Amino acid sequence: MRKEFFKNNDNLNALDAQYEAQKIAFAPIIFQVARTMRDLKLLELLSKNKDGLTYLELANKSNLTKYAVQVLCETALSANIVSIKDEKVFLTKIGFFINSDRMTNANMNYNHHVNYLGLFNLEESIKNGKAEGLKVFGNWETIYPALSTLPEEVKNSWFEFDHLYSDSGFPKAIKILKNLKPKNILDIGGNTGKFATLFAKENPEINITIMDLPQQVKLAKQTIYENNITNVSTYEGNILLDETLVPKGFDIIWMSQFLDCFKEEQIVNILNKIRDSIDDNAEICIMEPFWDRQNNETASFCVINTSPYFTAMANGYSKMFKYTDFEKLLIESGLNVIETIDDIGLCQTIIRCKK
């Protein structure tokens, strides 16, 4: 169900609003201080010392100077990551989540390793409609062909982030697809083949084909080989090219976090191609995180703020969708929505469509 978020975001007095504005102005510094304290294990030390530590004790335990510890802790104090009482530093609830929460850590790693340097070029990307930030990693038009060759920390953080949000929805998605009783499924944008292999293991009687770029198919083939799966095959193709046809004869066309990688006119073209390739009984099943169909404002915040990555780093033109905007593209493509299922994993919605 569509929900309203961020409704009462202008009810602060002037002084509080100015303070919030300073938090934004200093956000890059606070982010790097928090990440540094996490990675240097300062937050971990504080979590294990419930009675607090002085700057000198924290310095000795971390093999850092008292100066280094104090600089970090004072900024952390201003950001409510730590509290200071009687000359001792304590970890707050916010600090706990930065240190221990899986989602927070995946978001932080992703933003530090994948986005941080490139987002310096966001303004240029906005003006040019190109992923200008991607040049920090090499000469690529989009990030997708580059994924397998990105620096290790960048690649690991990208996949950690991607898999956290998509993988959480896989168990429920597999049950939903299985209940539709398909004989064969085409997984467009199957990426590393993680979904396909999970589905294939649980449903050996159902064949699944991964369609993706050659670079991604190579990764998928490795996943298939490592899992010794026999009911998964691959099909190389760039679906954006006019000459690339969507193979026919499938009961379900499955796309998981795929269409958010394209601009609106490209999505319509892709859906038109798919619609023309299926028969009247086949279904198109789309899994996406729509920011206006989340359970809570925290989830909506995370989904919305993934969009600048697409602008600066991925391709320069795609974004995370509001469901009501995405629905218009389905209608434009001549598709009928027969069911919309929310609460798939952390943040996903599955849309079932037919001609």
Rank of each mutant, 00 (worst) to 15 (best):
F301H: 04
D260R: 08
F310T: 00
N203S: 02
V82E: 08
I126D: 09
T65M: 13
R275E: 03
I185V: 08
A220S: 03
F195K: 06
S157H: 02
K201L: 13
L259K: 05
K41T: 12
A59P: 01
E236P: 06
M211P: 00
A314I: 06
Q222S: 06
Q32V: 02
V303G: 01
I81K: 00
A14V: 00
K273N: 08
N281R: 03
P151N: 07
K66D: 09
S78T: 10
S100L: 12
L72E: 04
N107M: 14
K194V: 01
C302D: 08
K130T: 14
N60F: 12
A76I: 03
P182D: 06
L186M: 04
F250I: 06
A59E: 04
F6D: 03
N13P: 01
K175W: 05
I208L: 08
K263F: 06
T244E: 05
Y116W: 15
L40E: 15
F250Y: 15
A146D: 04
D187A: 05
V136L: 07
N121E: 15
A34T: 14
A131C: 09
W254I: 08
L177K: 06
E132C: 15
D187P: 14
K50I: 14
E283L: 15
N228A: 12
F195I: 01
V246F: 07
S125I: 06
G345Y: 06
Y317F: 14
Q257L: 13
K319W: 00
A17M: 15
N107E: 12
D86L: 08
D39P: 02
N9E: 15
D280K: 14
I224V: 00
L271H: 04
C261A: 14
Q216N: 13
K328A: 14
Q348R: 08
Y144Q: 11
F290Y: 04
K354G: 00
G316C: 01
R2P: 12
E288Q: 12
K181T: 13
I253Q: 00
P151M: 02
N9W: 08
Q22E: 09
G193E: 01
G189E: 02
E123H: 13
I30P: 14
K85R: 13
A196N: 04
K66T: 12
T142N: 11
Q18E: 10
Y225M: 07
V337A: 07
K201H: 04
D187H: 08
K88Q: 10
T234V: 12
N9I: 15
K183A: 05
G249N: 12
E4R: 09
L45W: 10
P308M: 00
V136I: 15
G190T: 00
F262G: 00
D16V: 02
